[in-house]
Nucleic acid binder design. Structure first.
Lengths: 414, 414
DNA sequence: AGTATTTTTTCGAGGCTCGAAAAAATTAGA
DNA sequence: TCTAATTTTTTCGAGCCTCGAAAAAATACT
């Protein structure tokens, strides 16, 4: 059951709140922080002077835009870029990338690699991931001790404590405990995150006005994924990363899905399904392993050009997504949607059927007011999400810890 | 954004935690409370002596079962039944009931009435609800000032702040702001709750071992409703009570639903749908307004007796529920399910097809391990849920308030 | 230069939780 | 019956934390 609040938790939480206010606002003054947090000026003053002394925050000496106002000018507080760093790893189909991010969220160093994830044996896949991390950590420009967190994002299902990949479409391997491996090898706390969840996290940072408390990020790519934020919290399943929108049932007993089952939304709206329908192949036929982005672009071009099986394939995809969203909206009420991934560039072909379908559902009431954004490039989004997630962890668990500080990570302590 | 923790919040929250520990455990000693909350003995001692002085808790003088142990015997703390009372109102099809519940959750007084909700004009429906509340409050045995909260549960959709009924199958009327009306009339804070949500709340109180952090309560009755608890929290939509499981799409363009749309789960699994299929009427035919419980029992009996359209109707219901649950489990991962309502008595007819369907879904992996409980009688469950919800409000907002006490409600204050 | 204004820091007061020790209430054993 | 042991509960002082008020700091206006 939930536990009482101890006296020391109080400072911890308020510290975390100040850090998060600075991260969100950029360069807020102490007065602004007091206003947004509801704490008194004295408290903010005390906490921020602690944080500055510990090297977590710094007063921004930046050339202030003239304050115009009379009175003592506000002095902005900013995150100290050197307070810590995090490492992000993104593992997707045939592609591996890693980046070092400073405490303010800026990319410091980056590395990308192509590899054949589908055929790679388990050991080699793991070795490649560990190797790219090791190379980034050995960068001579980097103080390894400052790296406080590793976040690895992967397409597929992860467990809910974010310790392991359970299943992924990019490899036949299952149940890889990446987090434990990384922690054992490098002694840095690590998590394994679902790629779509990280997209959602990133969208909120990019556009907090649109993506605030409740929204949906859908990845349109070879498969269909979803990241869901409800009531300001990233939604995960009770045991897994959850939110397997692509495997909700669109038509019982319908088209064959990559997961081996029938009638999943993905079996109509994944790239392989659009391809299969555009080629007028049977819905029973085995999903192909990969369709290149170029092929999908060509398909979309033909669909735009003239009515035919290609256009019909996109229509079916839209219908599946629309009924699926309608069912989802019946559960959670309508919310803004972001369509992410290469196929989001073909959303013009998908949208009409999607809206028509959603209008036939209970969740699609006032379907005109439901708005869709598109973002064709998912990779930067995933990396940004990972970075923000890892940094939030540092903010909360390392710089505002419950028990005691991890002194190795802290710098500039008086 | 989230707000800082003030110093006085601390006591408030810990008070609330002590109260809730007592409500949960029944008669815990101070030592037990200290253990479950993680707070120190001194803190628990201080808080509980406050609560006793204020008449919220009382030391249970009850004949202790011999403690068997050496040492000073534990003295149990219990809720003071007279500390407050709440009023529950349940409005369902052709039926209205109200009850006064004491602070320990015991029913003190009760009243039930039949009324024709489907044809009743708006004013009369509202008048009936207000009247039953007024009669209960005028009971000479009751100290009106002790009534600290009214909770009204209604079949249908409520808004997420629990202030109004938005839509309900039991009446053609929409958008009735019951909470405001009750508060204006009686000066007692009120909420309007969804019936299935209250079922879920009650299930957790009845059987916290099975229904703890994640579970699903499904109402099988004329329509199909759901109450959902995720991560220990009652799940509601972003704008409405949400969780409209019955209106997820089972078959796009399929059977005509009571909501006017097509292919909803309810259009296969609601009583009217089972009836329609059993009578081999067209799936297009208009849903009938009501089927009596006796007729449904007769239908189930015939279905058990021999194969035929009745059995097939239950099979279709099971299929719809199974695919729907599969889609839901794809989103939230599998969780225990309670089937509530008169038709839960026919769950033996539904279960085989349900399990077969769910096994065909991604969410239905290991479908054998998904367990179903049945509870045919929903009304007591709804009332219990209302009572617990209202009492939790009193615990948290009145007896552990942030700003200041509401002196009118408090008794026995030194 | 002096005054008004706004931000930030300082300082004492009041609360809260905690640990240690004391007090209370019972059982086990002599 | 009396004493020692044991367990629960209360008491008390220490240490933090936040807050409000006042002071200090830093600028614009006149």
């Amino acid at each position: 059951m939930s536990v009482g609040i101890r006296h020391d938790d109080l400072r911890r939480r308020n510290r975390a709140m100040v850090i998060s206010a600075v991260r969100r606002a950029g360069q807020p003054s102490r007065t602004e922080i007091a206003a947004t947090t509801g704490l008194s000026h004295s408290t903010i003053s005390a906490i921020s002077s602690d944080l500055i002394r510990e090297g977590i925050l710094a007063e921004s000496k930046a050339s202030e835009p003239v304050s115009l106002k009379r009175g003592r000018p506000q002095v902005g507080l900013a995150l100290n870029p050197e307070a810590a760093a995090v490492l992000t790893v993104v593992l997707s189909l045939n592609f591996l990338s890693a980046a070092i991010i400073d405490y303010t969220g800026q990319v410091v160093a980056e590395e990308q690699r192509r590899l054949d994830t589908l055929t790679m044996p388990r050991d080699e896949l793991i070795r490649e991931c560990m190797a790219i991390v090791r190379r980034r950590l050995q960068d001579p420009d980097l103080d390894v001790r400052s790296v406080a967190r590793i976040a690895l994002a992967i397409q597929g299902i992860t467990d809910s404590p974010a310790r392991a990949m359970l299943w992924s479409p990019i490899t036949p391997q299952t149940d890889i405990a990446f987090a434990d491996m990384l922690e054992d090898e490098f002694g840095i706390p690590a998590t394994v995150e679902n790629d779509c969840n990280m997209m959602a996290v990133a969208l909120r940072w990019r556009n907090p006005d649109r993506y605030r408390d409740d929204f949906i990020a859908i990845l349109l790519s070879h498969g269909i994924g979803m990241g869901l934020v409800l009531k300001g919290e990233l939604f995960t399943g009770t045991h897994s990363s959850g939110g397997e929108f692509g495997h909700m049932i669109h038509r019982p007993g319908g088209a064959l899905c990559r997961c081996g089952r029938r009638g999943c939304i993905e079996a109509y709206a994944g790239n392989y399904a659009i391809w299969r329908n555009a080629r007028q192949m049977s819905e029973e036929s085995e999903p192909i392993a990969d369709v290149s982005d170029a092929d999908m672009r060509a398909l979309a071009a033909r669909a735009r050009e003239k009515d035919g099986p290609e256009r019909e394939a996109y229509r079916k995809a839209g219908e599946a997504l629309g009924f699926g969203l309608g069912s989802l909206f019946a559960l959670i009420d309508p919310a803004p949607v972001a369509m992410v991934g290469a196929s989001a560039a073909a959303f013009d072909l998908i949208e009409p059927a999607l809206r028509k379908a959603i209008a036939q559902t209970a969740g699609g009431q006032h379907s005109d007011s439901i708005s869709f954004d598109t973002e064709p490039n998912e990779l930067p989004l995933i990396r940004e999400g990972c970075a923000m997630r890892a940094l939030s962890f540092v903010d909360q668990e390392i710089f505002a810890p419950g028990a005691q500080m991890r002194p190795s990570v802290r710098k500039n302590v008086a």
